[in-house]
Simulated assay, not measured.
Amino acid sequence: MSTLTFYSPQYNTAEKQVNVPYDDRLTLYWNPYINLDSTNSSKEILFHNNSNAKGFHVVVNGMTDSGKLIYYSNSFMK
């Protein structure tokens, strides 16, 4: 079984931000390796929305060091 790398376009230059091809991705950001601890209890996550979006829905799933499951879900609309 092979795995695929999650496609996340890079808009790290002004030219790439202006000349963006049509983007219809449903999942905009995926990172299973974000780690937070007592010295780093927040994390800034930057992502670019798709071409059709009127808002976005955030879902966070995780687990504490003690095994407690974490779940957060919220919608943000224009």
Results as ranks from 00 to 15, higher is better:
57 H>M: 11
48 H>A: 15
49 N>F: 08
65 D>K: 10
61 N>C: 08
69 L>M: 14
27 T>H: 00
56 F>T: 06
16 K>D: 14
15 E>M: 10
35 N>M: 10
70 I>N: 02
56 F>Q: 06
12 N>Y: 02
57 H>V: 10
49 N>M: 13
46 L>G: 14
43 K>S: 08
3 T>G: 11
34 I>H: 07
24 D>G: 08
47 F>Y: 07
61 N>Y: 05
76 F>Y: 06
22 Y>R: 07
18 V>A: 14
43 K>I: 06
54 K>T: 15
51 S>K: 10
58 V>T: 12
29 Y>A: 04
5 T>P: 05
36 L>H: 08
13 T>D: 08
33 Y>A: 14
37 D>T: 07
77 M>Y: 04
31 N>P: 05
75 S>T: 06
6 F>E: 09
32 P>H: 06
56 F>N: 06
7 Y>V: 09
52 N>E: 15
2 S>W: 00
14 A>P: 07
58 V>K: 01
37 D>S: 06
60 V>F: 00
26 L>M: 00
52 N>W: 12
22 Y>S: 13
2 S>L: 06
33 Y>M: 11
71 Y>W: 10
49 N>G: 15
27 T>M: 00
73 S>H: 07
78 K>G: 14
74 N>V: 03
73 S>T: 13
14 A>L: 11
66 S>P: 04
52 N>T: 15
33 Y>R: 12
27 T>N: 00
35 N>G: 07
38 S>N: 07
67 G>Q: 06
74 N>G: 01
47 F>M: 06
69 L>S: 14
75 S>I: 09
32 P>L: 04
16 K>Q: 15
12 N>H: 02
66 S>H: 08
18 V>N: 12
72 Y>N: 11
45 I>D: 02
45 I>W: 00
13 T>H: 04
18 V>Y: 11
40 N>S: 13
53 A>N: 13
47 F>K: 03
30 W>Q: 06
61 N>A: 10
21 P>E: 01
14 A>M: 10
30 W>D: 09
48 H>L: 10
21 P>I: 02
68 K>C: 04
23 D>F: 05
77 M>T: 15
6 F>D: 10
24 D>Q: 02
67 G>K: 01
13 T>R: 04
3 T>K: 02
9 P>L: 02
8 S>H: 05
27 T>A: 00
55 G>H: 03
60 V>S: 01
78 K>D: 13
64 T>C: 13
33 Y>L: 15
48 H>V: 15
34 I>S: 11
31 N>T: 07
44 E>K: 00
47 F>E: 05
47 F>V: 09
14 A>S: 12
49 N>L: 14
59 V>L: 05
24 D>P: 02
17 Q>W: 11
4 L>Y: 03
20 V>R: 09
26 L>S: 02
38 S>W: 00
31 N>Y: 04
3 T>Q: 03
42 S>G: 14
78 K>H: 10
42 S>W: 08
28 L>A: 08
29 Y>I: 08
75 S>F: 03
61 N>G: 09
31 N>V: 09
5 T>K: 07
17 Q>G: 15
72 Y>R: 08
77 M>W: 01
70 I>A: 04
4 L>G: 05
64 T>Y: 10
61 N>D: 14
